[in-house]
Simulated scan of single mutants.
Amino acid sequence: MTELKRPPLPHDFHPPVASFTVVSEDFEPGAVLKDAQVQAAGNTSPHLRWEGFPPETKSFAVTCFDPDAPTGSGFWHWSVIDIPVSVTELPTGAGSGKFEGLPEGAVQVRNDYGTKEFGGAAPPPGDPAHRYVFTVYAVDQEKLGPDSDTSPAAIGFNLRFHTLGRAQLLAEYAAPAGS
């Protein structure tokens, strides 16, 4: 039996940009996501804090993407744009649909679940572990332009042309077979 080839990560085909650092108090790089970040168990966005971004940054965007989702195009779990440059941390739960913990002016965009909030990990039971890529983008504009009804793919298109730097954290999660 041949091993399945994993899809590329979301930035593998984008132009190179400066890198900076993002960390989380809720998971370690490469670790398994905790139940809090799983759709059926907690559905809570993780804490994220970043530093070392380019000095010309004017705003930030944050996304969470699963390239391993069995869709042919991955799955967007979270997209937030227009985070003011003065904000370098989002608390645990900032991605709730109540918008608590998001800074004023930030725009939470529709995810692939169809909601404007963080949507937790939910791979099909028995699938190999899926990768969840949390990315912070340093953006060259205060306002990216799209509104909250814009698709995550269109947000990604805009970010491709307005990203000065990128930081990412990767975690994994697999739902047990039969769950």
Rank of each mutant, 00 (worst) to 15 (best):
E3R: 10
R6L: 13
R6H: 06
P8G: 08
L9P: 04
P10E: 01
P10L: 06
F13K: 11
H14V: 01
P15A: 15
P15I: 12
V17K: 07
S19P: 00
T21N: 11
V23P: 06
D26T: 12
D26K: 11
P29N: 09
P29D: 09
G30A: 05
A31S: 14
A31W: 03
A31H: 09
V32P: 01
A36E: 15
A36L: 15
V38Y: 05
Q39S: 10
A41P: 05
A41C: 08
H47I: 08
W50E: 11
E51P: 02
G52C: 04
P54R: 05
E56R: 14
F60K: 09
A61Q: 00
A61F: 00
D66R: 02
A69Q: 13
T71G: 15
G72K: 07
S73D: 13
G74K: 07
H77W: 13
V80C: 00
I81D: 03
P84G: 03
V85M: 15
S86P: 04
V87L: 01
E89P: 07
T92H: 12
A94T: 06
K98R: 10
K98G: 01
E100R: 09
L102H: 04
P103L: 04
G105W: 02
G105D: 04
V107G: 00
V109G: 00
V109W: 01
V109H: 00
D112P: 14
D112L: 14
D112Y: 15
Y113S: 15
F118C: 03
G120R: 10
A121D: 09
A122I: 00
P123S: 03
P124F: 02
D127F: 03
P128G: 10
P128A: 13
Y132Q: 07
V133P: 04
V136L: 04
Q141C: 10
L144A: 03
P146C: 05
D147W: 00
D149E: 10
S151F: 11
S151D: 12
P152Y: 08
A153G: 09
A153E: 14
I155A: 01
I155H: 02
L164Q: 11
G165L: 06
R166P: 00
Q168P: 00
A174V: 08
S179C: 01
